[in-house]
C-alpha cells in the first residue's frame, strides 16, 4: 500500500475509495510528544485544504488539513486515550481519520515517498 503526502505533511493511504490520513513521521518528530488530538465529526464533508483536526504537543498546536476532498467516515478514537500513538506509529496505529475520497485524482496529485523525501530534506 503506497502512501502519498501533502505539502503540509499529512499522508494518505488509499484503499479502494477510502483514504486513511495521519501525519508523517517527519512531522511528528518536529512536533514532539503529542498530548491531544481534536478529531473531526464522522459524516462531515470536507474540501481539500479545510482544517479538520488539531494535533497538540505540549508547546504547539497544529491544524491538520484535509489532503483530499470527501466525507469523513471514521476517526481513530484510540487517540483520545493514547495520543502518543502518533509519535510511536504515525503511519499505522497513529492514523487520525478516514475519508471516503470524492476524486482519486486529488490523491494522485499528492507527493510520493521520493518527492516527499525531497520536500523535507
Amino acid at each position: 500500500m503506497t502512501l502519498r503526502y501533502s505539502q503540509d505533511h499529512e499522508y494518505v493511504r488509499l484503499e479502494g475509495a477510502v483514504g486513511t490520513i495521519g501525519i508523517s513521521r517527519y512531522a511528528q518528530e518536529q512536533l514532539g510528544d503529542v498530548v491531544f488530538v481534536e478529531l473531526p465529526q464522522v459524516g462531515a464533508s470536507v474540501t481539500r485544504g479545510d482544517e479538520v483536526a488539531v494535533v497538540e504537543s505540549v508547546k504547539a498546536a497544529s491544524e491538520i488539513y484535509a489532503p483530499v476532498s470527501g466525507t469523513i467516515v471514521e476517526v481513530n478514537d484510540k487517540l483520545a486515550d493514547e495520543p502518543g500513538l502518533i509519535n510511536t506509529d504515525p503511519v499505522a496505529a497513529g492514523w487520525i481519520f478516514k475519508i471516503e475520497v470524492a476524486d482519486t485524482g486529488e490523491f494522485e496529485s499528492l507527493m510520493d515517498e521520493a518527492a516527499y523525501a525531497d520536500h523535507t530534506a
Binding site: A60, A61, S62
Partner: peptide, 12 residues
C-alpha cells in the same frame, strides 16, 4: 498540518 514546532523537548 501547520508546522508550529519550536523544537523544545517537553519530557526529560
Amino acid at each position: 498540518m501547520t508546522m508550529n514546532a519550536t523544537g523544545r523537548p517537553t519530557a526529560p
